[in-house]
Design a protein around this nucleic acid. Structure first.
Lengths: 113, 113
DNA sequence: TTAATCGTGCGACTATTTTCGAACAGTATG
DNA sequence: CATACTGTTCGAAAATAGTCGCACGATTAA
């Protein structure tokens, strides 16, 4: 029996409105930022203080909107940013959002001014 | 006495999450697309079939999130995209979103058919 | 002035989203 | 095997967002 399988939208099925909505939630935007910095990340590291069901809710929403790829690893769950797919579908979007997030939010080091 | 005044956030107060949320709504995203194409537009042209109160709701949300500039013109209300401010705040964001919207959604408003 | 038009604010309602506890199933460890 | 740990699902609750009728003030035109 397959352990856990996840459905992911094809790259050309990713809808801009759903991506924007997924990224408009501060919690999820922060998860995406972490994924962009760290690469594939254990799901629990994306929200150590959140109830598990809440974490599942947000990771599922990110997955269904095409922002992340989810992979079962033993009993854990590894999350990857679909940066290449997003770059192909909406060139520049991810970089722009993350750059804007860094500059907009609190004092994340602005070394390269 | 000024007829109608509107509050607009300063450019450096525009928050990425709020902008993304504003653009994640299909109705508002379409308004923004029209504004990008047509420039300053009479508010009623952005949603001729919508109830006025609904239209006000969406234009206010776009204004408060820093996406548009609203100006009273007689009894009408002219809407401008804050494209320069957005470009300064989040370089590339607007172009990327609109380009992604065009490519993703082929069913543009059929008003100009 | 009178009438028509426009946008706004209010209030109520519906729909969607978020949160999270509890029970459950799969996995690793002993 | 039993136990501890993981993520998922379900259900319900709360919070948020969208829709829209209506009354009102302001503006324009006759």
């Amino acid at each position: 029996m397959p352990p856990r399988t996840y459905h992911h939208p094809d790259t050309d099925e990713i809808a801009i409105a759903r991506v924007l909505f997924a990224l408009s939630e501060p919690l999820r935007l922060n998860m995406v930022r972490m994924l962009a910095e760290q690469g594939e990340t254990d799901s629990i590291d994306l929200g150590p203080d959140l109830p598990r069901s809440t974490l599942t809710h947000h990771t599922s929403l990110l997955r269904e909107s095409g922002v992340v790829f989810v992979r079962a690893e033993g009993r854990k769950c590894m999350i990857q940013l679909r940066d290449e797919d997003l770059e192909q579908r909406f060139p520049g979007l991810l970089d722009t959002v993350l750059t804007g997030y860094e500059s907009a939010d609190d004092d994340h080091s602005e070394a390269d001014a």
